[in-house]
Write a protein that binds this DNA or RNA. Structure first.
Length: 816
RNA sequence: GCGGAUGUGGUGAAAUUGGUAUACACGCCAGACUUAGGAUCUGGUGCCGCAAGGCGUGGAGGUUCAAGUCCUCUCAUCCGCACCA
């Protein structure tokens, strides 16, 4: 009985394919599980991270199928994006052909790994049908005011004449031609994700328990909510005149209103509109303009290295003291946070302090420690007592904040304000291989939405992709069209959408079935049955962007009336990375292990077993060739020892009391593994412990020869291992049980009942020996036995206390 | 700097509620079978010690009859964010 994985795996893969074994049912009265792994980009080959991801989801999907759930376990391909275009440029190939060839290859890999994905629901996001529905949603969002267009600063390569994504900018230069990047003000489409900031933050609470804490915290930080006071700083009359009366004031935001009396200067971002005005109207010396230009050109990383600034020689009036305070430009003030202007309190803010020291600006303390002296050699940022603060003197600085805000509000000088780090999501890309934004520019009507019956607006097949400029823009005919409103000549929007848009709703599309696949993205009935995703599995690298965008889309779709829940993913498991030689597998490091090679040498079951056995799924997994061999040997043993099993179509009935000690022990181990299996699949997801339990059971079985015990064991073990090593388990199950055992297994409590047990005996908490006692022994009997066994350690000692922990141990506390 | 995690044998890791620390596997050692073994099977393997025994979950304290687990402090590593006003 040799273990020939090649034949076994092929047989069952064909069997599953032929029988459509993994298609979900359309019967919505059944209990359901939606098990989802993050879909891959079709890069060409699966890597071990994918294998890990899908081994986890497949184990869960197969388990719940056995438990008679209606299981949706779909897969698709996140197939738009730059790598396809880059490959096209490099190999002079068609991105579409490249993409779909890769998909074909990877589909074969999925099959070879035995993953139980639904075939019928597979799609690629570059499919025109998917684009059609997505463009429909985009139009809805625009019409609802959730999408808008605005000029924004983008990375521009002057040589290639194209916009670059942040990832394409390497050390401030173009990744292709090494030309320094400039920021260019361009029109860009945005989703109003900021409108959902509060809800995205607040409903994180509802995900507690279901999502890893780390991800919740990362999202919380990313949204970055902070409360404070916003108020206007008015120019003095001379400054106002200098600015040609164009500006009265600018507004600032602070989270520390308690430090208001300590404001000694204010600072604007180099990109602030007042600064821009002063430059454009020659109100600044050439030297100052040059300094400001230099700040603008410095990357945000370099800006952090040293603070720099320049005075604008204008001043504003402090709202409370009415003193004049100078206005500076400072490189640490960010245009895209708050209003791009800050009040500076050097005495109580480290940045403001450093800047004031460097430029010799006034420093005024207004908070003193509750005990000790006022600090002068550094910023005092802790809570203290207010002084130099007018009528607020003597107050606790923290407690005074509310009152100061109230004072500003009462006197109409400012208001309580909340700021977020989360910015609106810029979704337009000047790229070919993406979903076209379905808008039309008409000279008479302006920006017009394409009519939904004309969707999809598909990509042209004959675009020339050189990597320079936007192929859609340069295409000779594609962009010319008629205005959907007035039918005059018009042009299409040539920007395509960020690929994160596709992955923000693909999990909803999987809910659609063959019955309505072509007609609609999904039906409300399908969505309300399948959603939310019961278990989502993927890498931590998506903790922010994808997972935040998907949550945003869900809330938008709710508000558009497509669905009626708030969160898409009830439970999230973030798997750890796969490492080799202590480092993440990567081509550049040359430490990759090719899944295909492992399948070829050991088979899919071995690959799956190793990956689930080597570490719990949330932890990093160190690849180990020897341990892979170990996994292979286990499967081989498991298969070969099945010769001890006798064919049957129900689980054998065994009279437990008639068995030998070894036989009983084997049964205990088998049923322990079963109990653990249910816990692991449902709750803990620590497949490594389940596999260890099955190994223990097999080791225990080996110590006896009772064929009923063997048969019962294999009935159970091949059932609980099927989600992990499905091929060999199907083979065993088919050989001996006619596949009748792949169903829920009953735990027989009688197996765990024994007439004697071993108890540890410890003295003062230190384990000394052990005793065997009958299970119905009284505490007195147990203590007597324990004292006998431990007499050696009890000589000349006074017994203070005796503790019996049922079924565990006896502890005797002694003195002397 | 802020936030999140993780520290257990030579290695990957177990220990579900505070209750016999190191299950399972890798590696290593020994033996068996073999022309041979990088195959298979059997046994051994936390550290110190001849032994009795002692010591052991990053470190230091604490609570408890009992701590890997709870509390306080601390060190190290990894990850995320970061001049966010």
């Amino acid at each position: 009985m040799d273990y020939n994985f090649k034949i076994i795996e092929k047989t069952w893969q064909d069997f599953w394919a032929k029988n459509d074994s993994f298609e979900p049912s359309e019967d919505f009265t059944k209990k359901k599980k939606y098990i989802l792994s993050m879909f891959p980009f079709p890069s060409g080959r699966l890597h071990m991270g994918h294998v890990r991801n899908y081994s986890i989801s497949d184990a869960l999907a197969r388990y719940y199928r056995q438990q008679n759930f209606n299981v949706l376990h779909p897969i698709g391909f996140d197939s738009f994006g730059m790598p396809a275009e880059n490959a096209a440029i490099k190999n002079n190939a068609d991105p579409k052909e490249w993409t779909y060839n890769n998909i074909d290859y990877m589909r074969g890999e999925f099959k070879a790994l035995g993953f139980s994905f639904s075939k019928n629901r597979e799609f690629a996001t570059s499919d025109e049908l998917y684009t059609k529905f997505e463009q429909g949603f985009i139009i809805d969002m625009y019409e609802k005011g959730l999408m808008y267009s605005q000029k924004g600063l983008l990375n521009w390569c002057p040589n290639d004449q194209t916009v670059l994504a942040n990832e394409q900018v390497i050390d401030g230069c173009c990744w292709r031609c090494d030309t320094p990047i400039v920021k260019k003000d361009m029109n860009q489409y945005y989703f109003k994700i900021s409108e959902y900031s509060d809800e995205l933050l607040d409903s994180l609470k509802n995900l507690e328990g279901g999502w890893p804490k780390q991800v919740l915290t990362m999202q919380e930080n990313w949204i970055g909510k902070s409360n404070g006071l916003a108020f206007d700083l008015f120019f003095g009359s001379a400054s106002k005149e200098k600015l040609n009366n164009t500006f009265d004031s600018f507004d600032v935001f602070t989270t520390r209103p308690d430090t208001i009396y300590g404001v000694t200067y204010t600072a604007l971002a180099p990109e602030h509109k007042i600064v821009t005005y002063m430059i454009e109207n020659s109100l600044l010396s050439d030297e100052v303009v040059a300094k400001i230009d230099a700040m603008k050109k410095t990357s945000s990383i370099d800006r952090q290295k040293e603070k720099s600034g320049v005075a604008l020689n204008i001043s504003v009036i402090h709202p409370l003291t009415k003193k004049e305070i100078p206005v500076w430009v400072a490189n640490f003030v960010l245009m895209d946070y708050g209003s791009g202007a800050v009040m500076a309190v050097p005495a109580h803010d480290e940045r403001d302090f450093d800047f004031a020291k460097k430029y010799n600006l006034n420093i005024k303390s207004v908070i003193k420690p509750f005990a000790g002296d006022v600090k002068v050699d550094s910023a005092f940022t802790e809570v203290g007592e207010l002084f130099n603060s007018g009528s607020f003197d003597g107050q606790n600085s923290q407690e005074s904040q509310k009152e100061i805000i109230k004072y500003f509000e009462d006197s109409k000088m400012g208001q309580k304000t909340t700021n977020y780090k989360l910015k609106d999501w810029g979704v337009s890309r000047q790229r070919y291989w993406g979903a076209p934004i379905p808008f039309v520019h008409c000279d008479s009507c302006g920006l017009v939405m394409e009519k939904k019956e004309n969707l999809p607006i598909a990509l042209p097949k004959d675009a020339e992709i050189t990597g320079e400029g936007n192929p859609l823009e340069r295409h000779p005919t594609w962009k010319y069209c008629k205005c959907p409103k007035c039918s005059k000549d018009a042009t299409r929007e040539t920007d395509t959408m960020d690929t994160f848009v596709e992955s923000s709703w693909y999990f909803l599309r999987f809910c659609a079935s063959e019955s309505n696949w072509k007609d609609e993205a999904f039906s409300k009935e399908q969505i309300s049955y399948w959603m939310g995703v019961d278990q989502y599995i993927g890498g931590i690298e998506h903790a922010i962007l994808h997972l935040l965008y998907a949550r945003f889309f869900t809330k938008v779709f709710r508000d558009l009336g497509y669905l009626d829940f708030d969160e898409p993913f009830d439970n999230l498991l973030t798997q750890g990375m796969v490492l080799k030689d202590g480092a993440k597998m990567s081509k550049s490091k040359g430490n990759t292990v090719d899944p295909d090679a492992i399948i070829e040498k050991y088979g899919a079951d071995t690959a799956r077993l190793f990956i689930l056995f080597a570490a719990p799924p949330t932890q990093e997994l160190e690849w180990n060739d020897n341990a892979v061999e170990g996994a292979y040997r286990f499967i081989k043993r498991f298969y070969e020892r099945s010769v001890n099993v006798v064919k049957c179509n129900t689980i054998p009935k065994i009279e437990h009391s008639t068995l030998s000690k070894e036989e009983k022990f084997a049964r205990v181990k088998v049923y322990e593994a079963l109990v653990r299996a249910n816990d692991v699949y449902n709750e803990r997801h620590t497949f490594n412990t389940l596999i260890a339990g099955v190994m223990e059971a097999l080791n225990a079985l080996n110590l006896q020869q009772n064929s009923d015990v063997w048969s019962e064991a294999y009935w159970i073990l091949s059932s609980i291992m099927e989600p992990i090593i499905p091929h060999v388990c199907y083979e065993i199950s088919s050989n001996y049980f006619g596949l009748a055992n792949l169903k829920p297994q009953v735990v027989l409590d009688e197996v765990f009942v024994c007439d004697s047990m071993m108890l540890g005996v410890s003295i003062n908490g230190k384990r000394r020996t052990e005793i065997e006692v009958s299970t119905d022994a009284s505490n007195e009997e147990i203590i007597t036995l324990a004292k006998e066994a431990a007499s050696k350690w009890l000589e000349d000692k006074a017994i203070v206390k005796e503790i019996v922990v049922p079924k565990k141990l006896v502890n005797i506390v002694v003195k002397g």
